[in-house]
Design a protein around this nucleic acid. Structure first.
Lengths: 121, 121
DNA sequence: CAGTATCCAGCACGATACTG
DNA sequence: CAGTATCGTGCTGGATACTG
């Protein structure tokens, strides 16, 4: 029904809600982290580093991250499909925030309840 | 009362996941903010300040915040029910993080898409 | 006033299979 | 390799009604 998000009414209740919407997917942060670490990642790379994510969900979250302008999708248009993902400026600007989230968890949450550490790497 | 099973197998994938789980409810941040501003809030106060939240959901999220030791529930045990909520030390420690989330949204998200500003208050 | 119980809609995510 | 499409399930949160 509704076509474009041009002059649509607000999609977020407040700034917090807005930020949360962008990073709330089950694997979005890990995807961002992975791309940030390597500089650029292909679809298969992400699949290998984030073992538990399903194919479909990885696709979806990459699409949402791209739609929200946090990552950029480069399609090399070759015979053998070749797509690379990188962080946008906006995406890079949010990394320190993700670090802060990681650090708070590291400091205030019982390590016994945490499967695998991320921040300390 | 109800104490959750003391099974110690990890409930969180990593620190980020852990932190997110605590603040991920639709109204949790607004609840935290409201309590932080006033110092202490009653159930009805929260209902009045966060108009859109349903009764049941407010109850649930307060319970989860309390279970996660972010807020504390004081029951005055009087004839007329009287319960007050305050932030725990852990709860107060997360406020700067919430501010950071708010600030990032304020800086990087189009204000036209945001219904009501929270950070600037 | 504060909390519980029940039922229900939406959606996020997974499993699987198919495409170029 | 990268991406669709389809189907199913579990969880979150809303509506409503009842309790002390």
């Amino acid at each position: 029904m509704q076509s474009r998000p041009t002059t649509t009414h607000p999609r977020y209740r407040n700034e917090f809600d807005a930020t949360m919407q962008l990073i709330q997917g089950k694997w979005k942060i890990m995807i961002m982290y992975e791309i940030a670490e390597t500089g650029t990642s292909r679809f298969a790379d992400l699949q290998h580093h984030i073992r538990e994510v399903s194919h479909k969900t990885l696709t979806n979250q990459l699409k949402e991250l791209a739609d929200d302008d946090l990552i950029e999708r480069h399609d090399f248009q070759t015979a053998q499909p070749h797509v690379e993902y990188t962080l946008t400026a906006k995406g890079q600007s949010i990394i320190p925030l993700l670090d802060a989230i990681c650090d708070w968890g590291d400091t205030h949450i019982d390590h016994a309840q945490i499967e695998r550490s991320l921040c300390d790497e």
